[in-house]
């Protein structure tokens, strides 16, 4: 009985240790990806060089998407700030000037945001445009 309790205790300690180790390893590698607006990102330099998600609007000028839509470079606009984005990957269908997008990546030394994830925000736009009578529910 007593020995069982000791065995259970040892097992518990091992498990807790394993979880703590994994959590520590996760923390060290950057546990979570922050979501920031363009303005917040420009203000808060601690996130430069870290992998983050930025959201903003695609600017009209400076938009170039290349053959096969496998990469794109564009300017991401915030309320006041702007960030140049170089994206490598598949360009989504709904990506165009004026679209609200989320990009994930890191800011390089030249001040260009290198991204490999590009998502158009809010695909549920679907609801409102064509049938304004139901918009907003």
């Amino acid at each position: 009985m007593n020995r069982t309790a000791i065995k259970l205790l040892i097992g518990g300690v091992i498990l807790v240790g394993a979880v703590s180790y994994l959590a520590w390893a996760g923390m060290k590698e950057g546990w979570a990806t922050y979501h920031l607006s363009v303005d917040a990102f420009l203000k808060d330099t601690q996130h430069h060089g870290q992998r983050v998600r930025l959201f903003g609007k695609v600017a009209e000028e400076g938009l170039a998407s290349n053959p096969g839509r496998l990469s794109a470079s564009f300017v991401l606009l915030g309320e006041s700030g702007r960030v140049n984005v170089a994206y490598k990957g598949v360009v989504p269908d709904l990506f165009k000037a004026g679209a609200e997008v989320v990009v994930e990546g890191t800011l390089d030394k030249q001040g260009t945001f290198q991204s490999d994830v590009l998502m158009t925000k809010c695909a549920s736009k679907y609801d409102s445009k064509e049938h304004p009578q139901n918009g907003g529910k």
Partner: peptide, 24 residues
């Protein structure tokens, strides 16, 4: 639930990428 926690801790939203889930 981390995005909800982190929002209350430092006011910045954050998500946990799949690789962290895999590792943990």
């Amino acid at each position: 639930m981390w995005p909800a926690f982190s929002g209350t801790i430092d006011g910045k939203e954050a998500t946990v990428p799949p690789r962290v889930f895999n590792k943990m």
